[in-house]
């Protein structure tokens, strides 16, 4: 529900449209330059979005009172070779 200014895929489509507009040769010089500038901005914005490195895993839990809580979640990357045949924890299902 975060209202991001514009979605990545929309910007991608806009950029494609700009490229084909300029390519069509139907624009006036001013329009063409304006479109180009917008295109450059879009490339920057798109790259910016791709460069966002915010890798994060949160754990969402609910208290007895019904409150939601988030906490950083440690990835269970260590027990990769731990296969379902192992013993059952109270809390963990092997799937």
């Amino acid at each position: 529900m975060t209202n991001k200014p514009k979605k990545f895929e929309d910007e991608l489509k806009d950029l494609e449209a700009i490229v084909s507009q300029i390519d069509s040769g139907d624009l006036t010089l001013d329009e063409s330059i304006a479109a180009f500038e917008r295109g450059v901005m879009l490339v920057k914005a798109l790259n910016g979005k791709l460069d966002e490195v915010e890798r994060k895993v949160e754990l969402l839990t609910r208290s007895a009172g019904g409150e939601l809580r988030t906490a950083p979640f440690e990835q269970p990357s260590d027990n990769q070779n731990d296969h379902p045949a192992g013993a059952k924890d109270d809390d963990e299902t092997p799937f």
Binding site: L50, D51, E52, V53, E54, R55, K56, V57, E58, L59, L60, T61, T70, F73, T93, F95
Partner: peptide, 15 residues
């Protein structure tokens, strides 16, 4: 996609 966020909400999935 390295720059992605995951919100994990655990749940028992069997039983």
């Amino acid at each position: 996609f390295p720059g992605i966020q995951v919100i994990f909400r655990p749940a028992r999935v069997q039983g």
